[in-house]
Design a binder for these strands. Structure first.
Lengths: 132, 132
DNA sequence: TGTATATTGTTATAATATAACGTTATGTAA
DNA sequence: TTACATAACGTTATATTATAACAATATACA
């Protein structure tokens, strides 16, 4: 069987919803909002999310247990992700900085470990919240 | 009231247990293991963990919902953390690399956001698992 | 001593995520 | 076109992770 070419029905529904939000969404909030489209159970959402994360269409913000659509059109596989998170308003932005990604992708320490993936989360105050 | 100088009873019990493990522990596994010391409820463990994370004695491995003792004696506050995680055996190691931490602490993008903290998780295969 | 804050103890419950089962759809090769 | 393997679906139940809310006790310090 070939690598999946198109998204399935549930995957499309979930991705569509997450892409329309400009912020990370929680799984159960997604569930609530796609119930009118026929998805009834958490597992249906989680399975779609798992797949979408796997193929890089969606990233999980680990520190928030939330899911956000990938903003890098070239982010084929989500093996190198970086986000900035405002600790006041919770705004999350995907960082697309080639220097940073190059630096981290090439990072090696003396542990003998071969890294194939990383996730970086920066925390602080966004412009708006800083000026309050 | 001054900044807390000593750890409280529950905080000591939890830290002690986490320090003795050489791997991240789950909150409920900690709970199970400190029950003989008198901690009966999840909240008692979570409250101790919260405090210990706040003061940098313990770090949370966000992608695993697990807690590990800080290995950097100089890690006064946990505002700059990096870990390597083996996706096969789940071994987690805290990365202590001054170049990396300097690079990330000084990182700026064009978002106007002021970063005060970051957490980085690398994934891959450790030496042992790579050679299997 | 009085007061504010931190910590504790406890019960209940919220929020996040997966197990297990059987069914249906889809891709590929005989 | 049939057979087979894999992916996706639907469903119920349950596991795992984390917090709300309330009352009591301990600690720091003016």
């Amino acid at each position: 069987m070939q690598k999946q070419q198109y998204l399935s029905k549930n995957q499309k529904i979930v991705l569509d919803h997450v892409e329309k939000a400009n912020q990370p969404l929680k799984a159960y909030s997604i569930l609530y909002n796609v119930q009118k489209k026929g998805l009834k159970a958490p597992l249906q959402v989680y399975r779609a999310l798992d797949k979408l994360v796997e193929i890089g269409k969606i990233h999980k913000i680990e520190s928030r247990n939330a899911f956000v659509a990938c903003k890098n059109s070239n982010c084929v596989v989500s093996n190198a992700t970086a986000f900035s998170i405002c600790e006041s308003c919770e705004k999350v932005t995907e960082i697309n900085n080639s220097k940073l990604s190059k630096y981290l992708s090439n990072f090696e320490d003396n542990s003998g470990m071969k890294y194939s993936k990383y996730n970086l989360e920066f925390f602080g105050l966004c412009k708006k919240c800083k000026n309050k």
